[in-house]
């Protein structure tokens, strides 16, 4: 089987989110990558070095700069003329593009797979991960999004794939990128961090979040996250959200501070290796999944913890 993997990037750097998708694709067959963007030759160069990649397709066109699905999907459909499976990371970019490709190919997409069980059989979580479904598709072409935390990252060095230019991209004219507000942060990225400190409703305010959660995270070299309640309350921006509909994370250590543990939040972090919970309510559901729990007032515990680390 020939697979085509969508590379996640910002036109300058290849994002780590691509690497587990390469691992998933390799279980199906030969791996080709697609780098679609503008002025993204450097990304293609990085992509050639990923272990196990046979070929890198490079589509460099102004219409592809912002990953608009209206412009990228037709290009992928063309490439699917000689590929059997299209795989994208289950990121907001992948989730935006892949179903558009699937519909144009008349294929039912397999979303958010967590294992490849055969050429047509996959496992995926449903109901916020409260149930796990093994599914078998009858479509001859496959369109798949891959949950990054479920597959090992392919090695980013060691490969020597060739680059092939893809032409034919065009602007569909129906959508235009206007602006992006991307938070710059010195901290590790949430989805690839080894340690995450997350704050919930119990933190109380954005000021408290800055005064308590961020210093603890910095002491641990951790990324910062949040529950939906904390984002809805405006303590932190949306890109901090961990959960069913936010980011799915699986760090070595996840520290949940003032998070009660709604099933939608647990769905996003319960595959973490070690979960530490700090909460004043000893009956909070978070303690049912936590490896280490500390019951008490986070306003006393967190500063003390930060100072003792």
């Amino acid at each position: 089987m020939k697979t085509l993997v969508l590379v996640e990037h910002d036109n300058a750097t290849l994002k780590d989110a691509t690497l587990p998708v390469v691992t998933a694709a390799a279980k199906l067959g030969e791996v080709h990558l697609l780098v679609a963007g503008k002025g993204c030759a450097a990304v293609a160069e990085q992509a050639t070095k990923i272990a196990g990649v046979g070929k890198v397709h490079l589509a460099d066109d102004a219409a592809l700069e912002h990953q608009l699905p209206e412009n990228i999907a037709p290009l992928i459909v063309d490439l699917m003329g000689h590929h059997d499976a299209f795989l994208a990371p289950a990121t907001t970019t992948g989730k935006n593009i892949a179903p558009r490709v699937a519909a144009l190919l008349d294929v039912m997409q397999l979303s958010d797979i967590i294992s490849v069980d055969g050429p047509d059989t996959f496992t995926r979580p449903i109901y916020a991960g409260n149930a796990i479904a093994q599914v078998k598709t009858s479509d001859t072409k496959l369109v798949i999004t891959v949950r990054g935390t479920a597959f090992e990252k392919a090695a980013s060095e060691g490969g020597s794939a060739s680059v092939e230019a893809v032409s034919g991209a065009s602007d569909a004219g129906s959508a235009r990128f206007v602006s992006a507000e991307v938070a710059a942060s010195e901290r590790p990225e949430l989805t690839s961090a080894k340690i995450i400190v997350s704050g919930g409703r119990g933190v109380g305010s954005g000021e408290n979040y800055k005064a308590l959660i961020e210093p603890l995270a910095d002491k641990l070299g951790a990324a910062v996250g949040a529950s939906r309640a904390a984002v809805d309350a405006g303590f932190v921006p949306n890109d901090y959200q961990v959960g069913q509909t936010g980011k799915i994370v699986a760090p070595e250590v996840y520290v949940a501070v003032g998070i009660s543990g709604a099933i939608q939040h647990l769905a996003g972090m319960k595959d973490s290796k070690t979960i530490i919970a700090i909460n004043k309510d000893e009956d909070a559901p978070i303690f049912q999944v936590a490896d280490i729990g500390l019951v008490g007032d986070l306003f006393q515990i967190v500063p003390e913890l930060t100072s003792k680390l």
């Binding site: 912002h66 608009l68 990121t91 907001t92 970019t93 959508a175 235009r176 990128f177 206007v178 602006s179 992006a180 507000e181 991307v182 938070a183 989805t191 921006p237 949306n238 890109d239 980011k247």
Partner: peptide
């Protein structure tokens, strides 16, 4: 709402 923050189209 995108992974990196917000985007307007």
């Amino acid at each position: 709402e995108v992974d990196g923050g917000l985007e307007t189209v």
